[in-house]
Design a protein around this nucleic acid. Structure first.
Lengths: 341, 341
DNA sequence: CAGAACTACGAAACCGTTTTCGTGTTGATA
DNA sequence: TATCAACACGAAAACGGTTTCGTAGTTCTG
């Protein structure tokens, strides 16, 4: 077993001091050509690599960024993560990922674990429970310690920090407008039962589009579904009882469920009922008919978040200057497919 | 900005030595009750938390594990990752994840980045390119340094280490047998063009099932598809030219593509053609008809891998004893749905 | 009352780096 | 020949902890 070699080993072997070795490996002017060559050759031979942990301790910089997301088996979050990982890696950072599982406690525990020196900054999307409780003390503590934080998608106004969001309201508006333009009038909204700011924003866009077109908002046309274990008969009844001709769903799974229900009721998509969903995942692409959906450009979101974070990490925080925070908006786009016409 | 407090600060403030503070916080017998209370109260008040990096340096243990996977926007890998994360977290470990993007070079670079002290062990699944090149020197170097390694799913015989795999051959055999039992005879295999050991194993199961039932293997009934950009007309021609009545696909995306093609040719599933895929993702569940598929139990795989790794990390490596390695087999199960009868 | 034993704490080494500063040696300068 | 800069290197502090060991001061023992 070839154990890792350290500066001390090299120093001892070559009968020079540790400082000389360190400087020689950095090609310092202070060290004679002879010594440098000797040291570098030896280091290469034994495949010397500096110990990351020691460097982190010395520099008070880990080159790790912490990512906390509610779920990992989830198309949107994984695309965002890919963007983060890609950008971070290109800048020499590694990514530590923790999953909050939509739980407030796990989110808090994970943050605390990482906040004690393991990472240089956080990128996160709030858990459902955190949004419900409206308790952000763990975030506050972290930012007060001077650890940079970037929130994406599921954000909050309570915390001052960099944020990356998509134009949920506007794109929902556009989607509904499009369906209205194609002659639809009884437009349903299928949304989550838990309190997500994104669902709220999408609902706002939905309502505004109706209002701007003189269509009264009808509470009966809003169907809220649970996150798990969706009851199909419940959906079917919703469609039977209300004479719906178009649907905006806040995610693709809801959309596919509803499309299935509608089809099994013998209705035709998009002629009888049009559908628009959110999240451009495999389902939207491969379902028959394919689903018109809002592409959230998760990867771009992740890259932007990582870039903002690393920028904050790497700019010396001028103690005197007031910190400034940005909110970056990613323009979502409507991908038209077969479920609308 | 409340900066993190250290032992040194506490010591200075309370006019005791650093060692006393350290011991007092650990409730050492050595320290008087009075002093302990004083120190603990102070630490609590200022929310003292030991610096992870310093502890890592001292202990030569990071409590981080490194995970390297080929892709993250991928149902199977994310389920495995969820298992890893869940288990690791329950044991106080964090997870650093790197994505090789199916590239040999990225895999090597990522391993080297992490191997210099950042992690206590690796869990990984080989990239496509690594499997093609058959070059595993980066793995060898890591294991020779005494860093524990667990491979899952995409493994190799060239490296001695713990492994977690599924019974690909057997479950493929069972799937094909099931289709034969229901009267199918012209059974196609749809597989990847790159060299994956898993695809190979599944093909073996397929061939063995045919052989055991006296059905000659026909090269013409094997369709290899690229990983990306699948040409539908190519698939349709395959089904038109060969009078196929059942299909085994090595993943769910291939299956859905083929089912779409078959349906657009006017054939009926499962009466005209039966389908079995691998990976129990959203597509298999929600496609119409829903796809009979092999559930790989990724989460269990991840948990097992994490458990094996942490066990290795935490057992003092008795230098004198020969290292022993295990290969754990996760039993995949066939989930019967509408695409078979 | 001398010596032993115990109590409660501090000094210092250590983990593996980086970096500042000090110093012995050399050769050039006045 | 005394002075001085340049050169090449080493000692030591620092990052933030843990742990071993040494040692004052007190109490117990015979």
């Amino acid at each position: 077993m070839k154990k890792k070699i350290t500066l001390k080993h090299i120093a001892r072997e070559l009968e020079v001091s540790i400082s000389t070795v360190s400087k020689a490996l950095k090609n310092s002017e202070e060290i004679s050509r002879d010594t440098k060559e000797k040291v570098q050759a030896f280091a290469k031979l034994y495949n010397y690599r500096p110990n990351n942990i020691a460097i982190s301790l010395k520099n008070k910089r880990t080159r790790n960024i912490g990512v906390i997301i509610p779920d990992i088996v989830h198309h949107f979050f994984t695309t965002v993560f890919r963007g983060i990982e890609k950008f971070a890696n290109s800048r020499g950072y590694n990514v530590i990922i923790c999953v909050s599982d939509e739980s407030f406690d796990k989110e808090v525990i994970n943050m605390e674990m990482l906040a004690n020196g393991s990472i240089d900054g956080f990128i996160m999307s709030l858990s459902a429970e955190t949004q419900q409780k409206n308790d952000f003390n763990h975030l506050k503590e972290v930012t007060e310690q001077g650890i940079p934080l970037v929130l994406f998608d599921r954000v909050t106004d309570e915390i001052e920090c960099d944020k990356v969001i998509i134009n949920d309201k506007e794109v929902a508006y556009a989607a509904v407008q499009k369906m209205i333009d194609s002659g639809k009038r009884k437009i349903a909204l299928v949304t989550t039962d838990s309190y997500f700011n994104v669902s709220k924003k999408r609902a706002e866009g939905y309502k505004k589009a109706l209002a701007d077109n003189g269509i009264p908002f009808n509470e009966m046309l809003v169907l809220t579904l649970p996150y798990q274990e969706i009851d199909n008969s419940y959906i079917e009844r919703f469609f039977v009882e209300n004479d719906i001709d178009a649907v905006l769903c806040v995610n693709e799974v809801f959309a596919i469920h509803c499309m299935g229900a509608v089809q099994s009721l013998g209705m035709h998509i998009p002629d009888d009922v049009s559908f628009v969903g959110f999240t451009d995942g495999l389902l939207s692409r491969y379902f028959v008919p394919s689903l018109t959906t809002v592409a959230q450009h998760g990867e771009q979101m992740g890259e932007t978040a990582a870039q903002m974070l690393i920028e904050k990490i790497e700019t010396e925080i001028e103690e005197h200057e007031e910190e400034t925070y940005r909110t970056e908006i990613i323009e979502a786009t409507l991908l038209e497919r077969e479920s609308t016409k």
